[in-house]
Amino acid sequence: MQHNWNFASVFAYWDVLLIGLWGTVYIFAITCVLGLGFGLVVGMMRYSKAWWISYPARVFVEVFRNTPVLVQIIWFFFALPVVTGVEVSAFTAAALGITLNTIAFSAEVFRGGIQSIEREQWEAGKAIGMNYAQTMRRIILYQALKRMLPPLTSRGIEVFKMSTLASVVAYSETLHQAKLIASYEFNPIEAYTVVAIMFFLVLLPLVQLTYVLERRFGKSD
């Protein structure tokens, strides 16, 4: 099969791609922060001994962990306005879908991390008069975070790449912009190749950063 590689036809639209990259970083930043933040809350709820706290958290996790994000985004974009009468922008629909999914997955990471800390550490905190919240914050979470850093890094990478799903509702992130170029220039192979390279170039340094974090956490070993 013959193909004349023509990357110049993609790079000519560098400004279009840059808008896309900004869109990707923007939706990633928001969904990642909200997803991990609320994920921690839901994870701690899952860990709770009171069933009326842990049970709703569990239902939430199972619903959003076991449904496709792509379908969620489409549903929020098209069905939510029908159900509620409120218009939902492409960004909101996509951010909502990705965030809810991130909450569900990271909640499980947080729960597992908290559970992995020995009971003795809780007792040591208690024995010097710390309450539940103080022990959780000062003793348990710090140690758990250290163990959770590798799975959370994977989650972060996953969220970054998941942002491409927002293209399905025409939110202007990288993949959507590349699709535009491809439809003008009939060069989808080159356009999508450039998307892949762009993602790789952005993610690789980010991942290096987490290794630095891991070393920082590891200084007490």
Binding site: E120, Q121, E123, A124, A127, Q143, S220
Partner: peptide, 9 residues
């Protein structure tokens, strides 16, 4: 405690 339970971090 028997197992010291110091805070390792």
């Amino acid at each position: 405690f028997q197992h010291f339970n110091l805070f390792p971090h």
